[in-house]
Amino acid sequence: MTTASRAGRPRASSRETLAEAACELFLEQGYEATSIVDITRRAGVSRSSFFNYFSSKSDVLWSEFDARIDAALVALARVGRGADGQTVRDALRPILEGLAPDPLALAMRNASAMGVEAELIRDTGLRHARLASAVAATARSAGIEVIRADILGSALATAVLSSLRVWAEQGAGQATLDEKLDEAMRSVHDLPWG
């Protein structure tokens, strides 16, 4: 069953339909009050279809971004002992390159209305930890001592995630995501690889 708001529009993929339905419901009734059953009912798909695309309600927001982080982790692992600042930044840049407004950006922009503030803080922390750990491991393999490597990993992970958050919160028509990332990377300049 589709909602009246979908009339006349071509049917998107189930993944897109589920994400759209989830975001609509988060805005209408809040994140905590929205169940997976609510989302599947609104999207007009089965509960099993939901789990074909997402592992949890939170995954609706983060799945595309997580795939980008996964690719960056692979790129960082390939850099190896020859890592320098530019190669690490080049491995991180695709996380945000070409990222269009999506459920995560919508949630960041409308966190209060959707009731996802605590969810975003917790889940951003998990992504930060993954990125920081990978960058720090790359730095250590390139000969940077442990504490400086950890600081560098944290700083670059923060640069990526802060760029995304600020871009999403400012909304369309403001600075581009690339501009935000460049600004954040310049802030890390005084650290090794700067």
Rank of each mutant, 00 (worst) to 15 (best):
A155K: 11
S154R: 15
A132T: 07
S141E: 14
A136H: 01
A83C: 08
R81K: 13
G173C: 02
L61T: 12
V146S: 14
G194C: 04
C23F: 04
H128C: 03
V79R: 02
L76W: 04
I36T: 10
D70R: 09
T40C: 03
C23Y: 01
V188C: 12
L152G: 02
S141M: 02
D70A: 12
A134W: 13
R127T: 06
S5Y: 03
F54P: 00
P103W: 02
R122I: 08
S154T: 15
V88S: 07
A157M: 10
I69P: 05
A12F: 11
L104C: 09
Y53K: 07
A118M: 11
E20A: 13
V160A: 03
L76P: 04
S163Q: 00
G82R: 02
L104A: 04
A75S: 14
D66E: 01
H189I: 05
T3P: 04
A33N: 09
L191N: 03
V74N: 11
A134T: 04
D182N: 05
T34C: 10
S133Q: 15
M1A: 11
G171M: 07
R42G: 01
I95C: 06
A168R: 03
A172T: 13
Q86G: 00
E145H: 09
A113Y: 03
I36F: 04
E145T: 11
L164M: 01
S58A: 13
V146K: 13
A21Q: 02
R42S: 05
I151R: 15
P94M: 01
R122M: 03
S187W: 15
T87K: 06
W62Q: 10
A4Y: 03
D178H: 14
W167V: 10
A142N: 01
V146E: 15
S35W: 02
P10R: 15
M185H: 12
W193R: 04
G80F: 07
Y31F: 14
I39V: 07
A72Q: 08
L126H: 09
A111P: 09
R68D: 10
A19F: 01
A184L: 10
V116N: 08
L104I: 07
Q170W: 10
L181I: 02
V74L: 14
T34W: 12
I144Y: 01
V45C: 11
G194P: 05
E145A: 11
F50R: 06
A19N: 04
S63Y: 07
G44V: 00
V37D: 11
D190R: 15
H128R: 14
T138W: 00
G44T: 00
A105V: 14
V166H: 10
R15M: 12
Y53P: 10
L104H: 07
Q174E: 07
A72G: 12
D150H: 08
E28F: 07
L126D: 07
L177H: 13
W62A: 09
L61S: 12
D123A: 05
E28V: 06
A172R: 12
R81G: 08
L164F: 08
Q86N: 09
A111D: 13
W62D: 10
D102C: 10
V116K: 04
V188W: 12
P10N: 14
S187F: 14
A100K: 11
G85S: 02
